[in-house]
Each structure stands twice: as structure tokens, then as C-alpha cells.
Design a protein around this nucleic acid. Structure first.
Lengths: 215, 215, 215, 215
DNA sequence: ACTCCCGGGACTGCCCGTTCAT
DNA sequence: ATGAACGGGCAGTCCCGGGAGT
């Protein structure tokens, strides 16, 4: 009852603290002492809820993945315009990366290959799959040229986004991530959408960017 | 003289061993014991040549950066066709990432921000700058459309390449990196080159890819 | 509750082991491995109770200081004959130096860190102050000549005792420390007490020495 | 020839550097790296002249002992007034302790028992012996009361001096060492010299102190 | 004869991730 | 959910040789 509630709060606090630490220091350089200090709990509490440091990191990754891909899944299920959705999702994720430590930490941990034996690839596969589904639908509505293969585009968009945001992080501490994502789309759209619709989608980009930056 | 030579060999062995370890485990999870075991040297030797673990990592990064950006600098100074050069450089770097542990480790270390206080951004800036210079020259020879800004393209290409190779690494252990780089250029070129030259550059891509994969 | 008790026992064991090691080897030559071996605890236990080697040494010093100066404080507060008290205290401390490893180690550590570390001086100041108070009282009871200043005597007695016991330690492993302290008083008393009382205080010395040596 | 000279210079530089380091840090906390840095030589040079760290420390102790006890030996051999000599020697050594790093280091090393297996006691024995000889002569000249035994006094004076200077070092960084030595003699002399000569020796003390402090 | 470069390992203090009794 | 304890490394660096050079 009240017990359950309190337990969940503790667990959430640990994940939040861990996320903050992992984001700043990376998995290897983060100690559990850092985590419990940031979370305001004791070591015993941490080991009650999680079985190891790896387990904590896994939980951060999962929380982040849910939080990030959730909107994508909704778009997949709703009947909204598909290419437009992909663009909006990219800006939405950019915002999460700026604002949400859990998302930042999750992405970072996902990329630290070799530290984790497995499961690292799953989030990326999920993303590629979701984007692919949306792009297939975009073909049907004539928003995506028939000359490009949805799966190729999906994989490239996910990769390019990853790289663009990393570079933004390294060079400017993520200050210009929205601008860089816009430029990505401006360079990509001519290859993706039929000539007649290009102007419309420029508007979509502009609207998406300004809406997210306003937050 | 003979002393000097042997010292350099020892130093190189340490860098090679460190690269192998960092590439597989990341900075944090790599111990100096791993390094000296892989390098076949003792701690005394390591301590003579480097003053800390950080110092070793820095040396790996520098070695990699030289090795990777060297060809780019040559192209910048030679009067070779510029956009073509950028494409070829991207495939060349892809090959290095597959074959050379020092390059793999260097790139990985460069991305583990926060662990290193500074200097992380420099390699990326160097790359962007080099590509930018080449693209400016490509404008003059009419290979790059006047509607896109060289600096924007340079930054995006560097970021996209980074992400594409990371994704390839996570999903396929880098087995398909050349194919993914080719797809990147196929999606980008329509925005970059004048319509009339598109076919020529498709040939460039194909040639570049097959030449590098042959190695 | 029982936990608390056990924790205190562990801490005390560490201090005891550390004292033994520091006394024999000095601060610099003592390793924490020596300490835990002598104390019969693990490194984790040590790290739980103390944050560093210095911290352990500090604890030894503090424990020793309490233990050594405690009797002095009692004498200060009680209305006992003052000069007699100082003499008895000196023999008492001599006995502690022979019997109690914590006291031995504390004294040694206090002197070793003397040159550069702050706070080292405090124990000596405490001793000088306590003796000074007692000597002032001795002036009132006519046991100390008015021709000598209590503070001068206090400082010299503390210094001389320090040197005498060190020499005894170096030359005979502290076997003759009581005898040497007696000689110290025999040489000093003619300057300190009025001529008429000299014989009485010779008795005090003899009694003090034999009482302590009997232990 | 010129070789020999340079070698001696190097050796002397090492001893000087080592003395500075040992004085400040103690034996255990001093690293050979500290020593060679302060001495301005390389490790190779150090190991050519000395076979180990202990050997270096031993050399410092020896150099100090020569330098300190030299004047005492001269007085022993010359037919100068004996008790007066002892007093002057004490002030002379005080001055060396303030001014000469080699002497400071030597004394400190001598006291760090247990770190050195043997030989620690010898310098003290030498001192006691020298003072004893002088005091025997003082008995003959009627400067020392027949009621005190020279050997007892010698041992106590050496011990008391040791403690007094240590206390001065801990409390004031040796600033007041001459003043403290004077107070030592003022408290001791009434027990040592016949009543009629007390005034004369007070002059000796005053002269000795002011002469040494003038330096 | 003297100096130095380069390297060898052992070991230090630290502290980390983890468990168990309560 | 806690306080206490457990061991196993970690990075660092220390003291020390040996062979080349001058």
C-alpha cells in the first residue's frame, strides 16, 4: 500500500541519481557511492532494489528507451501523416536529450559497447523498425519517393541523428542540437520527398524546430 | 641510437596494446594491467613513457588522429578533385575503422566525453575544417551546388559518418560499414551535386567502395 | 545495539594493530597491509572506519593523548599536592611508554609528523599547560621556589622528559626509562624546591619510581 | 683527477639534496625522485655513488655526525675549560640545527628508529662519551660538584638537549631554540656547579647564547 | 671512470562492488 | 532497508639494475 508507493519512489530516485552520474561520468567512472549520494539513499537500499551496478544501468537504459520510443509507438499506431511524424520525432528526441538526464544517460550507456555484453543493439533496432513502418506508410501517401527504399532511409536517419547529436554534444554541449537536426533534414529531404512537396516539408521542419525549442 | 630505437618500439607497443584494450573495453573498464599484458611490457616501461592512464589514452587518440586525418591533409594540399576526395576519404576512414585497432580505439575514446576534460573536440573540428576547405574548392569547380553552404555540409557529413559507423558497429560489428557509407552518399548526393553530374558521382561512389572493400 | 558494540570492537582492534605497527616501523614504513594483518581485520573493515592511513594515525594519536593526559587532567581538577603530582605523572607516563603500544605509537607519530603537519603541536601544548597549572599551585603551597617561573619550568620539563625517554628508547629499548626519569628529577629538584623541602621530595621520587616499576 | 673532483661534487650534491628532502619529509616519505630532483642529478648518478636509499641516508647521518661532533672532539683534545665547553657546544649545535640542513636531516634520521636496523645509537653514545670526558675534567678543575656523577649528568644533558630542541621545532619551528637551551642551563647549573661559581657560569651562558645568535 | 637511458616488478594506499545479519 | 564488513583489484610509483655512451 503506502509501502509499495514508497518503494517505487526510492527506486525512481535511484534511477534518477544513477542517470545523472552515468551521464556525466560514463559507466566505468561512476561509482555506486556517486549514485547513492545523488539519489539520497543508502547502499542497502540500492541493493534491495537492484542486484548489481549493471542492473542499475540496464534499468536506466530501459527507462530511457520507453520514454524516448513511446511517442514513436503512438505515431505508429495513430493514423497521422508519417514522414511528418518522423521529423517531429527527431526534434522531440533532441529536446529529451537536452532536458532529460535519464535520456542522456540511456543513450550514452547504449553506446558504451563492450561494457555490456548484450542488449545494446535492441534500442537501435526498435528505432529503425518504427521509422521504417512510418516510412512505408509515407510511400503510400506519396510523401516518400518510390526511388528510395524505406529501410535504407530508416537506418540512415537513425544513424545520422545519432552522429549529429553526438557531435553537437562534443562541440557545443548540445546547445545547437535542434539547429543541426534541422540542417540534417534540409539536406536529406530533396532526396526523400517528391519535388512538388518539398516546400510543404520545409514548413514542417521549421514548425517542428520552433515548437521544440520553445519548450 | 640503438637505445632510442628500442625505446620507440616499446612506446609503440604500448600504444598498440592500449588501443586494443580501449577498443574492446572502453576507457573506464580497461586496466593498465590489461594494457601491459597486451603490449608485452612491464609497468615500469609504461610508467617511463607515460605519466598516467589518461596520458596513454591521449597518445592513442593523437596517433589515430594523425593516421586518419593525414590523407585528408594531403588531399587538401594537392589539387585533386575536391568532392570526389571527400567521398574517397570517407571510405578510406571506414577501412581504417575495420582494420586498424588504433583508429578504432581513438574514435571510441574521442567519443567518451566527460572522462577526458578537454581536447576531445579538436579532432572533430579538424575534420570539419578539412572537409570544409575541400567543399569550398568543389564549389569553384562546379561540383557542389551553390544552394548549399559548404560549412553546413561539412559538419553534417562528419556527424552523419560518425553515427553511421557507430550504428554499423553496434548492429553488425562493422561488417557492413562500407555499404552503409555508400547509402549515405546516395541519399546525400542529390542535394549536393548539380543534376547533370549526379551519374558521374554515382560512379565515384561505386569505385571508391569497391576499391576499399578489396583491401 | 550489538552491532554498535561489534563495530567499536573492530575499530579498537584496528587502532591497536596500527599502534603496534607504527611503533615498530614508523609511519612511512608501515603499510596498511601490516595494520590489517596485526589487527586481524580486512581492508574493507579498515576502510569503513577510517578514510585514509593518515586518519588511522590521527586516531592512534588521539587515543594515546586521551589516555596519557587523562591522569594529568584529574590531578589538575583535584586538590592534590601539585609538584608531587607532576613527578608522579612523569613516572606514570614512563610506565605507559613501556607497557602500552598505543601510547608508544602515539608519541612516535606525534614526533614524526612534527615538521610539516599542523596540529601536531597540540598534545605538547596541552601537556605544558597542565604542568604549568600544577606548578602555579605549587608556588602557592610553597613547594616551588619563587625564583623560577612556572611556565619556563613546565616547558623544560616536558621537553626534557621527551628527550630522556627517546634516548632511553634508542639506547636500551626503554629498559631504563624509570631510572633516567629519576635522575632527571634528582638533577632538577635543587633548582625547583626550597632547600628545606629537598629531602621530602627525594622521598617522593623514590616512592613514585618504585611504585611504577612494581607494576 | 678532474674526474675525481667532479665525482666528489656530484656525491656532495646528492647528500645535500637528500638532506633537504629527509629533513622535510622524513625517511619513509622521501622518494629517490625527490632526492635527485633537489640534487640536480640523475638516478644513474645516484646509484653509482650509493648502493641504496639506506646508504644515502647513512651517508647523511655520517656527514652530520662528523660536522656536529667535530667541535666536541677538538674541545676534548684541547685543554680548554671543560664545563664551559659543554655549554658552548650545546649552543653551537643549536645553531647548526637552525642553519644546516644536513645536521637537521641527520638528527631526524637518527631518531627514526626501526627504519634503520642499526647504528642509530652510535651518535648518541659518542656524544655522551665526549660530554662525560669533559665533565670528568670539570670535576678536577672544581667546576662540577662532587655530589653529581659525570656520567649521569652527561646522559641527562644529551637527552634533555634532544628533547628541548625537538619541542622547539614542533612548537616554533626552531625559532626559540637558543632561548630554550639557555633556560635549560639556568635550571641545571644550580645542581651542577659549586655555589660560589654560579654567577660566573651565568655569564658563560649569556655570552654563549648571544655569540651564537649573532651568527 | 663516470653518467644516463630505459626498463623491471613488487607493492602501496585507496576504494570499489557486493553480501549478510539484523 | 541498514550498518558493518569483505576481498579483490585499481592506478600509481617506488627502489632498483644493467647496458650504452662519453
Amino acid at each position: 500500500l503506502a509501502r509499495q508507493v514508497r518503494a517505487e519512489e526510492t527506486k525512481a530516485a535511484i534511477i534518477r541519481g544513477a542517470a545523472e552520474a552515468f551521464d556525466r561520468l560514463g559507466y566505468g567512472a561512476t561509482s555506486l557511492t556517486d549514485v547513492i549520494k545523488l539519489a539520497g539513499v543508502t547502499k542497502g537500499a540500492l541493493y534491495f532494489h537492484f542486484s548489481s551496478k549493471q542492473d542499475v544501468a540496464q534499468a536506466v537504459i530501459e527507462r530511457q528507451h520507453e520514454r524516448s520510443i513511446g511517442p514513436a509507438r503512438q505515431r505508429v499506431e495513430a493514423g497521422v501523416p508519417a514522414l511528418e511524424s518522423v521529423i517531429e520525432l527527431s526534434f522531440g528526441l533532441a529536446t529529451q536529450l537536452v532536458e532529460d538526464p535519464v535520456v542522456r544517460a540511456g543513450i550514452r550507456l547504449t553506446l558504451e559497447t563492450g561494457t555490456f555484453d548484450a542488449g545494446t543493439a535492441t534500442p537501435y533496432r526498435d528505432w529503425i523498425e518504427a521509422v521504417e513502418i512510418l516510412l512505408h506508410r509515407a510511400v503510400e501517401t506519396g510523401d516518400l519517393r518510390r526511388s528510395v527504399r524505406p529501410e535504407t532511409v530508416a537506418r540512415f536517419v537513425v544513424g545520422a541523428f545519432t552522429g549529429v547529436h553526438l557531435l553537437s554534444q562534443v562541440l557545443t554541449g548540445r546547445a545547437d542540437v535542434h539547429e543541426r537536426v534541422r540542417e540534417m533534414w534540409e539536406l536529406l529531404l530533396p532526396s526523400l520527398v517528391p519535388e512538388g512537396k518539398l516546400a510543404d516539408f520545409k514548413d514542417v521542419i521549421a514548425r517542428s524546430e520552433s515548437r521544440q525549442r520553445a519548450r
